[in-house]
Amino acid sequence: MPTPYAESRPLPPYNALFAVDAKDFTGLPALQHGPVSQLIPELVDQALERSGLHELRDSKRFPANTGDGVVFGFDPALLPFVLWPFLGVLDDILGAYNNQCVGPRIRLRASVHVGPLPETDGPGDGNGTARNDAHRLLDSRPVKAILAAASDQVTHLAAIISQRVYEDVVLGAYTGLHPDRCVEVPATVEGKIFSQRAWLYVPSPSGNLIQAGVQSGEEFSTTTDASAGQEQAPPSEPVTRYSGNTQHVGEGAAVMGNIGRDFTYTGGSTSYRGTNQHWGSGDNVAGDKQAGGGGGHR
């Protein structure tokens, strides 16, 4: 067992990672688990084929079927093409399948990440922090919430892209995926010590996702799918809007940074609807939020 920090060692090669899993897989009858488990990698391979990624389809690194999905590594040079057009093509293939299927509909969450992972033709290949993070991103609250809130007739795929991939590939303009198609989110997983900045991409937004500003060029609203069906505030009431890293506050308090324990503001009535939202540099949090060290009450 290697001892951390005892000596320097060569860094494992960087591998890109793609992972998907199916929404509501555990709710399916046991009889359908096997067929759906086999179907998902077939649909992914169809999308790789149609996207022209024949090399990736035939040279997956340390691939694994997770039961409700698949995960595999690949050459990071192909990341731009996985983000665009592959994710959109996969969404189209899922839609075509769901429109004609007689069995359960297949709707997927996907994560895209990159990092150093061992690749030595041994049993530990592909295991490391980067792979763990790819699965945490896949299980994070924002991507689950966005897929649950979207129309199952239109939105078949929701993807979450790690900050590292976003910076290197999207902001680097190496891909056809424009930054305005992505929404920044705080990726957290219930019951896990995990928190990362990440980016959501929904190839086919629907319903309240469009109203919430998932589409390019729209201002992000604090009203999301989590509050669908709730009564909306009259236009005359002060509202708080989020755009990028700027908050426009009609009445109330703008908080940029960490909140420790309770937050109390005395003034006009201001209500915030929705849970676990992040637009730009602030969080709209239902309940208490604790981040970093302690601080004074505000």
Rank of each mutant, 00 (worst) to 15 (best):
Q100A: 11
R261H: 03
I160S: 12
Y272L: 15
P12Y: 06
N127C: 02
S51Y: 04
P85L: 10
R273N: 04
T120H: 08
L11K: 11
W84M: 06
T266N: 01
K60V: 07
S281M: 01
L147Q: 05
P85R: 11
Y242C: 12
G295R: 13
A286S: 12
V183W: 01
V70H: 03
S140P: 06
F86L: 10
A19R: 09
A16E: 09
I259P: 00
D68G: 08
K23I: 02
A134D: 02
I193G: 05
P203C: 05
E42H: 04
A149G: 08
L94Y: 06
I161R: 09
Q215A: 07
A159F: 15
P116S: 05
T3R: 12
E231V: 14
H54M: 02
L137E: 04
M256E: 03
G95D: 06
A253L: 15
M256C: 00
G34L: 08
I93L: 13
L79S: 13
Q232V: 13
A253T: 10
H178A: 15
G103K: 05
T129W: 15
A150W: 00
E7M: 10
Y166P: 03
V112I: 15
T155L: 10
R298A: 14
N98S: 05
Q232W: 00
G128E: 12
L138S: 04
S37H: 01
E219A: 15
L147I: 05
A253H: 10
Y97R: 11
G88S: 04
R241F: 15
L83I: 11
G176C: 11
